[in-house]
Computed example of a mutant assay.
Amino acid sequence: MTNSDNSLRSSRSNVTMATLPKTAVPAGIADPVESARAELKAALAAIEVKGNFPRRIDKASKRAVGKARAFADRNPAAATAASVALAAVVGGAVWVIARALSR
């Protein structure tokens, strides 16, 4: 079964693949070959989820942006102060690195 066949029912079990997470193995598979295929598919999906760093970074940055926007909506003065402080820290770090490299 491929990823595009998630909505198809397994011939040996009455569990649909669409109701389970991508990394789960359905219970009740009696055939050892089908069980091994389901375990391999789940293991490969788990490796893909854990190993796909660009996707994980994208999701984490979207969460951070959402939290920052919610914080700015609740407390605009603190958000402005945090932005100025962050800019000062980044500017200071760039200055220190540039000075160290120029010596």
Rank of each mutant, 00 (worst) to 15 (best):
S83V: 07
S61T: 12
T2N: 09
L44Q: 14
A82C: 06
L44H: 13
S7G: 08
N3R: 10
E39I: 01
A98H: 11
T2H: 09
P54D: 02
V65M: 02
K67H: 12
P26V: 02
A68D: 03
K67M: 11
T2I: 06
N14L: 13
M1H: 09
S61I: 11
K50Y: 03
L20S: 02
V33Y: 07
R69K: 13
K67V: 05
P26G: 02
V96C: 06
S4K: 10
K62W: 08
D58Q: 12
I57C: 04
E48K: 05
V49C: 03
V15T: 04
S83A: 15
L86R: 14
V33W: 07
V89E: 15
S13C: 05
T16P: 12
K67P: 00
M17Q: 14
S10C: 12
E48W: 04
V33Q: 12
P76R: 01
N14E: 15
A42W: 01
A88D: 15
L8Q: 13
K41E: 13
S7A: 13
K59F: 09
P76K: 00
W95H: 02
R55V: 08
N6C: 14
S10T: 02
S7I: 01
L8K: 13
F71Y: 12
K59A: 15
V65A: 10
V25S: 10
S35L: 14
K62P: 01
R63Y: 06
L86V: 11
A18E: 14
M1P: 03
P32F: 12
S13N: 04
V94A: 14
A30R: 00
W95M: 10
M17S: 12
D73I: 07
L8I: 09
S102K: 11
S61W: 09
S61Q: 14
N3H: 08
K67T: 08
R99A: 15
D58A: 12
R103C: 10
A64Q: 10
N75P: 08
A60M: 09
T80I: 08
A72I: 00
G92L: 06
A60E: 11
E39V: 02
A78H: 00
A30S: 11
L44V: 10
R74E: 14
R69I: 13
E34I: 02
N75I: 03
A27I: 07
R37P: 00
V96G: 01
K62M: 05
V94C: 14
A24V: 01
K22W: 05
A70E: 15
A79V: 06
V25D: 11
A87E: 06
P54I: 03
R55A: 14
A77Y: 04
I97E: 01
A98E: 12
A68K: 06
P54V: 02
V96T: 13
S61A: 09
A93Y: 04
I97S: 00
A45D: 13
F53T: 07
R56I: 04
M1E: 12
S11P: 15
A87V: 07
E34R: 01
R9M: 13
R74W: 09
F71K: 09
A81M: 08
T80Q: 14
S35I: 05
